[in-house]
C-alpha cells in the first residue's frame, strides 16, 4: 500500500510542480467564480449553486481527462515506464496510485466549490439548502472519478497525451449521445438499456438533492472497471 501511496503522491505532486496544474485550477476557480457571482449571488433570487454545478459538470468533463492524459502516456514517452515495470509493485497498484492522484486533483477543484458554498451561506438570507449542495459536490466527485479513470485507461493505450485526451473526451461524448439521444431512435428495450447508463440523468438527480445509492454504486462500479482495465492494459505491456 505504501508503494501505491508513493505513486499517488509523486503523480499529484508533479501536477503542481508544473505550471499546468496551477493554471487549470485557477481557470476552474475563475470560471466557476464568475458563474457563481452571476447566478448564485443575485439579490432577490433563491440562494442556489445549480448554475455553478451546471458549468462545473462541463469543466470536470474537460479538466479530468486533461489531468489524467499524462499519467501513463508520459511514463511511456520518457522511458520511466521501464523503471515502474521493474519495481516490486503490481499493475493494479500503479493504476490505483495514478487514479488516486487524479482524484486528489478533483478534490482540489471541489475545495473551490466548497468555498463558493461557504460564501453563499455567509451572504444569503434565508440560508441555502445544504442537501442539494452536498449532493452536487458528491456528483462532481463521482463524475470526476469516471472521467479520471477513463483518462487513465486512454493514457495506458498510447504514448501521446493529445491522443489520450481526445480519446477520453470522444468516448465521453459518445457515451452521452448513446445514453441520451440514441434511445429515441432505437427499439424500446435497447433504448431503456442505453438510458439506464446515462450520466446526465444521474447528475440531474444529484442536483435536485437526491442521493440515490444506486447512482453512487453506478459511478463507483464504472470507475473501478475502468481502473481495472487500465491495470490490465499496463500488464499487457509486459507481453510485448
Amino acid at each position: 500500500m505504501s508503494a501505491t501511496l508513493a505513486i499517488a503522491r509523486r503523480e499529484f505532486g508533479s501536477l503542481f510542480r508544473l505550471p499546468a496544474g496551477w493554471i487549470v485550477l485557477a481557470l476552474f476557480a475563475f470560471l466557476t467564480g464568475v458563474v457563481f457571482a452571476v447566478s448564485g449571488l443575485t439579490p432577490g433570487q433563491p440562494a442556489t449553486m445549480r448554475g455553478v454545478f451546471g458549468v462545473s459538470t462541463v469543466l470536470v468533463i474537460l479538466i479530468a481527462p486533461a489531468v489524467s492524459m499524462r499519467f501513463l502516456s508520459e511514463e511511456s514517452r520518457t522511458g520511466t515506464m521501464e523503471v515502474v515495470l521493474s519495481s516490486p509493485v503490481r499493475n493494479w497498484q500503479v493504476a490505483l496510485g495514478k487514479y488516486g492522484a487524479g482524484m486528489a486533483f478533483v478534490a482540489c477543484m471541489l475545495v473551490v466549490m466548497v468555498v463558493h458554498a461557504v460564501v453563499l451561506r455567509a451572504v444569503s438570507e434565508p440560508r441555502p439548502d445544504w442537501g442539494p449542495i452536498a449532493a452536487g459536490l458528491l456528483s462532481m466527485l463521482l463524475l470526476g472519478s469516471v472521467c479520471v479513470s477513463l483518462g487513465l485507461l486512454a493514457s495506458s493505450l498510447t504514448e501521446s497525451q493529445t491522443l489520450a485526451f481526445l480519446g477520453t473526451v470522444l468516448a465521453l461524448v459518445c457515451w452521452v449521445l448513446a445514453t441520451n439521444v440514441a434511445p429515441a431512435y432505437v427499439p424500446a428495450w435497447l433504448g431503456d438499456a442505453l438510458a439506464s447508463a446515462s450520466v446526465n440523468r444521474r447528475i440531474d438527480d444529484f442536483a435536485r438533492g437526491v442521493v440515490d445509492t444506486g447512482h453512487v454504486v453506478f459511478f463507483a462500479s464504472v470507475s473501478g472497471l475502468l481502473v481495472f482495465a487500465a491495470s490490465v492494459s499496463l500488464g499487457m505491456r509486459r507481453w510485448a
Binding site: 509523486r10 510542480r17 522511458g79 523503471v83
Partner: peptide, 27 residues
C-alpha cells in the same frame, strides 16, 4: 535494481525527492 538504457528519471523532481520516491516504491 534495474538501470534501463534510457536512464530515465522524473525530470520535474529534485534528486533527493526522486530517490525518496524510489525508496518508497521499492519498499
Amino acid at each position: 535494481g534495474y538501470l534501463p538504457e534510457s536512464a530515465a528519471v522524473y525530470s520535474e523532481m529534485s534528486v533527493q525527492g526522486y530517490l525518496s520516491h524510489r525508496a518508497a516504491v521499492l519498499g
